[in-house]
Design a protein around this nucleic acid. Sequence first.
DNA 1: CTAAGAAGGCATTGAATGATTACTTATATG
DNA 2: CATATAAGTAATCATTCAATGCCTTCTTAG
Lengths: 205, 205
Amino acid sequence: MAPTKSAEAAAAPVTRMGAGERRELVLEAATRAFARTGFAGTSTDAVAREAGVSQPYVVRIFGTKLDLFLEVYRRAVGKIAAAFRAVLDDGQFDPDSEDDWTRLGNAYTDLLADRDFLLVMMHGFSAGSVPEIGAAARGCMSEIFTIVTSTGCSAEAARDFIAQGMLMNIMLAMGAAEHLDESPALAALTECAFGEAMAVVSPPR
Amino acid sequence: MAPTKSAEAAAAPVTRMGAGERRELVLEAATRAFARTGFAGTSTDAVAREAGVSQPYVVRIFGTKLDLFLEVYRRAVGKIAAAFRAVLDDGQFDPDSEDDWTRLGNAYTDLLADRDFLLVMMHGFSAGSVPEIGAAARGCMSEIFTIVTSTGCSAEAARDFIAQGMLMNIMLAMGAAEHLDESPALAALTECAFGEAMAVVSPPR
DNA sequence: CTAAGAAGGCATTGAATGATTACTTATATG
DNA sequence: CATATAAGTAATCATTCAATGCCTTCTTAG
């Protein structure tokens, strides 16, 4: 019954992991956990279990649950901002071109494959009553608005673009895609909000 | 030092309150509390303190924190839906009339005076991982979409209208109006998102 | 005036939670 | 091989939280 040392040396985590590597793993686990249940609704223990690590260890790495969330949050925002910049940096963007806006929108819907980033961003918005999170959320929104308006578009165009994104976040958070059958109205709005990206968001059936 | 009975009989709560009346008071307090810190982030004790009542009493009235939240949530959604219906029921709505859409938008921004309803709705969206709340949130979104499309407008028009509302909710939740000075970008987006309603949302300076 | 019922607080409790401390085990370096 | 250091856990603590039960106080009907 005692595990044979040699047999599982390869597969089992007998080997220690570098601190940086483990930290990364925990950050990813925390992203999934926070994406599901938000800041207040997620315990450090839930994060630890998701990462396959002991609870004290996750607080040792990050100091505080809030610190951990902020780091997860900044990562998510960074990913999202980077996705936008990737579209805008190469070539030039024409605010009057329907196609260019579609390209920018696709940069967002591509993130749906890893919805956790969008969900974390969303949870940051609604945890605005925690001062540090509120500040981070406002910074996030400012950054995105700045990026979008850097195309030279009007403030209204940027607002409309962002608003569509926020609607998608909300539909995701409420689990609309998983419950299309609940209500025809919900299904119609979901399809209309996600458009081409429905395939990514909705299970293949 | 002992309070004179006769003197404060009028002002002080020496008199008992009807259960229904008290229940109403607690519901309002709970609305404020949940609006601030959401479902997971609000303790029944916080609600009790806000209502000036003991913690066990609030759970006695509503059975469970979740039950309380759901009741608060349904009330908020009801208010919002009613505001829309009030605009649509009298006279007829022309989906091609810019003015009519403005009227409908104003119905929403009028609710900003009591931002608590919108914030509660918002928190319901992001607490979608709690099954009952998720279901209620999807019901809310379905209802609103149904109301808006009952004007005969296209699904896309309804989606755009709702998306603007969701953006406002998010800006509210992150405290954008209270921190306009933090970033010019945030200020620009806020003014652009709220338009005429800025006066309501932002302190009179 | 008294008894019954309703309104509401107080004390408590068991489970979670965030965080700390001390201990163990693996890795690398002399 | 020995030992310092890094990786990680087990045990524990103080709080906080939702929920239950019992008691007190007010009101009202007889």
